[in-house]
């Protein structure tokens, strides 16, 4: 007999009645006890989201955040028991959540927070030997075709909002009231050692790194960056990747 389908459905939908077939030793209404399970499920999922999206929560306040997270959790419960990465589509939910429409930067702040968690738990990888890269860079004719594998714990987030400044102001860096939210910023998220670093980079450098990270050759990445900004600083962007130990392979064999 299928007990778990109605039980699970009632857990995630408060409008549904308590499932049939439940009994209590003292004859009390099982619905009150079933409510404990419902509460455990929803509160634990909202807590998991609050852990990941702490700045998002600070931007809207606890009450607003928990109400929004509750609606998300009921509509988008986790598909995996590995909860560390739960909430990947919460930023998109926020973007389409009418009560949050007055904070157009909120979804991108949430995206940045999620990318931080992804970077925190991403695979470990060793950087290439800087001298190997230096040797390759001396052959200018080979540069446009050069491909790189970037660290699994690296991500770029281009935004129409001041996503890095908003996030940093909640880490005690800069004053929130001085941030102009409508100023576009590009975030580079990268784990170095055991710490996840978030820094603002030029939009063109973001396009360059994201293109390289997608496995495309350096020439194509530089062209995209230059199209965004004629003053794109190729040496500066490469130097940043190198200093951050973010390049883990040169001309990797690509899967066909």
């Amino acid at each position: 007999m299928n007990v778990q389908t109605p039980f699970a459905a009632a857990l995630l939908d408060p409008a549904r009645p308590c499932p049939d077939g439940l009994v209590t030793w003292n004859g009390s209404d099982p619905a009150r006890r079933f409510q404990v399970y419902r509460n455990n499920v929803i509160v634990s999922l909202v807590d998991a989201l609050a852990d990941t999206f702490a700045v998002t929560q600070q931007l809207v306040g606890d009450e607003f955040f928990r109400a929004m997270a509750r609606l998300y959790a009921c509509a988008h419960p986790p598909r995996s028991p590995v909860l560390a990465l739960y909430g990947g589509d919460f930023p998109a939910f926020i973007e389409g959540f009418p009560p949050a429409a007055g904070l157009p930067y909120l979804a991108d702040v949430a995206r940045l927070e999620y990318l931080r968690v992804v970077a925190y738990h991403a695979a470990d990888a060793s950087p290439v030997d800087p001298t190997a890269l230096a040797a390759l860079l001396t052959d200018e004719s080979a540069l446009p075709a050069l491909r790189m594998r970037l660290h699994p714990a690296l991500a770029v987030l281009p935004s129409d909002a001041a996503v890095v400044s908003l996030w940093a102001a909640h880490q005690g860096v800069g004053a929130l009231e001085e941030v102009i939210p409508e100023v576009p910023e590009t975030a580079l998220i990268l784990r170095q050692g055991l710490e996840v670093d978030v820094r603002q980079i030029p939009a063109a450098a973001g396009a360059f790194i994201a293109t390289l990270g997608a496995g495309l050759p350096l020439g194509q990445a530089a062209a995209r960056a230059t199209a965004l900004d004629g003053g794109f600083d190729l040496a500066g962007a490469l130097g940043l990747l190198l200093q951050s130990s973010a390049i883990t392979a040169l001309n990797p064999v690509l899967p066909q």
């Binding site: 778990q4 389908t5 399970y37 986790p78 028991p81």
Partner: peptide, 21 residues
């Protein structure tokens, strides 16, 4: 206990009836 159903993880340790099945 059970905690997953229909592809959804419910993040709680949920109760079972105790019978032959």
């Amino acid at each position: 206990a059970w905690s997953s159903h229909g592809g959804v993880f419910l993040n709680d340790l949920l109760p079972l009836p105790y019978h032959a099945e």
